[in-house]
């Protein structure tokens, strides 16, 4: 068996136990596997299959339906919205600027796996269009120029943790709504930073 480290294993068992049937935990467990392996791997799929009583082919078949289970994402996943509200306010120009600055075309990853750049559909930030996310942390009201500065900052400083509030303050513009108080947590991988899946980092 390809068991995970005890902490991860404990999380996995707790997650699987929260559902009427263990197979409901396939999605959450795939996030755990991605965090552990830096992307979705055959070993990760096998472990999720063992934990849920499915076959690896079944797990793979589920994973392939969704866009967020990526095999080899870069350290920074930059997702630029080009759906209607962002389209009306220049989302495509932001995407082009990010592609130019990173040298990565939409949907691809660079050679050293630093950046993955993708265009995505609505991020639920339409009032703050155009919007993007870095590792699923939202930045609203970005200009093409600010998006390029953001990419340069990531390349030069390679921060371990991505925090929405910090990015919004430095690179964002008008938000979709008043975010209220900031938070300390941030993303440590191109996986949603959600504590039960073990992907958030408590702040300083």
């Amino acid at each position: 068996m390809t068991a995970w480290p005890p902490e991860l294993e404990g999380r996995a068992q707790a997650l699987a136990g929260r559902y009427p049937e263990r197979r409901s935990a396939v999605g959450p467990l795939l996030y755990l596997a991605m965090k552990h392996d830096g992307g979705l791997t055959a070993a990760g799929v096998r472990r999720v299959a063992e934990l849920t009583g499915l076959t690896p082919a079944q797990v793979q078949g589920v994973a392939s339906f969704y866009t967020m289970y990526q095999e080899a994402p870069g350290r920074y996943l930059i997702s630029v919205c080009t759906s209607i509200s962002c389209h009306l306010l220049g989302g495509e120009a932001v995407l082009a600027a990010v592609e130019e600055e990173t040298g990565v075309a939409g949907g691809e990853t660079d050679g050293e796996r630093l950046f993955t750049v993708e265009h995505v559909e609505c991020l639920g930030a339409c009032g703050g269009a155009p919007a993007l996310q870095v590792n699923y942390e939202t930045v609203e009201g970005v200009t093409p120029e600010a998006a390029q500065r953001l990419c340069r900052r990531l390349r030069e400083q390679r921060p371990a943790v991505i925090r929405s509030d910090a990015l919004q303050e430095e690179f964002g513009g008008r938000p979709a709504f008043d975010w209220g108080p900031g938070e300390a947590a941030g993303a440590v991988a191109p996986v949603p930073a959600f504590e039960p899946y073990g992907t958030a980092e408590a702040g300083p």
Binding site: L54, F65, T67
Partner: peptide, 29 residues
Amino acid sequence: DLTVHLGAGAYICGEETALLNSLEGRRGE
């Protein structure tokens, strides 16, 4: 018991029966 479950990027999962398939650990059809 209340459980917060994260989807994985598929608009169609907002349609209630697709959502239920997804919550059962299936493709969100």
